[in-house]
């Protein structure tokens, strides 16, 4: 079984968000990049499936050479092979189309994406891939088992869980629950050494035009001072919520 895990390279969650070029670009200065947390849950699951389903695991990112560090990390975590489609990731549409073009030349049984990336939070790429390839698609995926060529999945829905079955090929949007936080694999020395021997192929991009272009970024207004209420004056709090904020 062939599994592709799509990896997005995102600013560390503690990063200060700033913009440059008259607020038209995200300022990468001093920002640490990490594997998008949802993708890491998906990657861990894929690595488990190497044993349980004799899968081979390829990780792929659409990006420039600055993404190589996290691809090496994915190899150290346990992926067999890494691919980078060499271009600047501009928008979800062009990224998805690049991935689709690759998946038309090499067939994967399962394409694992994250539910959403924590930078632009679009949650667009996995559905676009599935729609373009006409594959089955399950996002917010919290369980995935493959038995005799069929997938059994679970998806978090509003207020509950939906269990489903479908044929492969399949695209999923992974999230916490597919594996737990404590299951995440921290690369050890052996993994890091082995990663150096594994292939990291850089392939040419199709250079697809983007459909969404960010013109300008701005930050939310600063908050005013907090209004403090004493613990023995809770009536006042209720009054403020009822009559000033008008939310209860």
């Amino acid at each position: 079984m062939n599994i592709l895990v799509c990896i997005s390279n995102v600013p560390d969650t503690t990063s200060k968000i700033n913009f440059t070029d008259s607020d038209s670009k995200f300022d990468k200065n001093g920002v640490q990049f990490i594997i998008n947390p949802n993708d890491e849950f998906g990657l861990t699951k894929a690595v488990w499936m190497k044993d349980s389903n004799k899968a081979s695991v390829t990780v792929l990112t659409v990006g420039d050479s600055s993404a190589d560090t996290i691809l090496r990390k994915c190899l150290a975590i346990g992926a067999d092979k890494a691919i980078r489609i060499d271009c600047e990731a501009k928008d979800a549409y062009s990224v998805a189309k690049e991935i689709v073009a690759h998946c038309e030349s090499i067939k994967y049984d399962i394409i694992i994406c994250g539910r959403e990336s924590i930078d632009y939070n679009g949650g667009l790429v996995p559905g676009l891939i599935a729609g373009c390839l006409d594959y089955n698609f399950i996002t917010n995926c919290v369980s995935l088992e493959i038995e005799s060529g069929k997938a059994k999945c679970a998806r978090e829905i509003s207020g509950g869980t939906e269990f489903s079955e479908c044929d492969l090929p399949l695209v999923i949007g992974a999230q916490k629950g597919l594996v737990e936080e404590s299951d995440l694999i921290i690369p050890n020395m052996r993994g890091i050494m082995m990663a150096r021997q594994k292939p990291l192929d850089v392939i040419k991009a199709q250079n697809i035009n983007s459909r969404a272009n960010d013109k300008k970024f701005f930050k939310p207004k600063e908050k005013g001072e907090v209004k403090l209420v004493k613990p023995d004056e809770l009536d006042k709090l209720i009054d403020l919520l009822e009559n000033e904020a008008k939310v209860i």
């Binding site: 679009g122 559905g127 676009l128 599935a130 373009c132 996002t139 509003s158």
Partner: peptide
């Protein structure tokens, strides 16, 4: 922006080859 609607939107954009933007 419910989970189902966002799920649908991305797939719909894929099959209609259109632009999708969320949030």
């Amino acid at each position: 922006s419910s989970a189902d609607a966002k799920y649908l939107g991305a797939y719909l954009a894929g099959i209609t080859d259109s632009s999708y933007i969320s949030n």
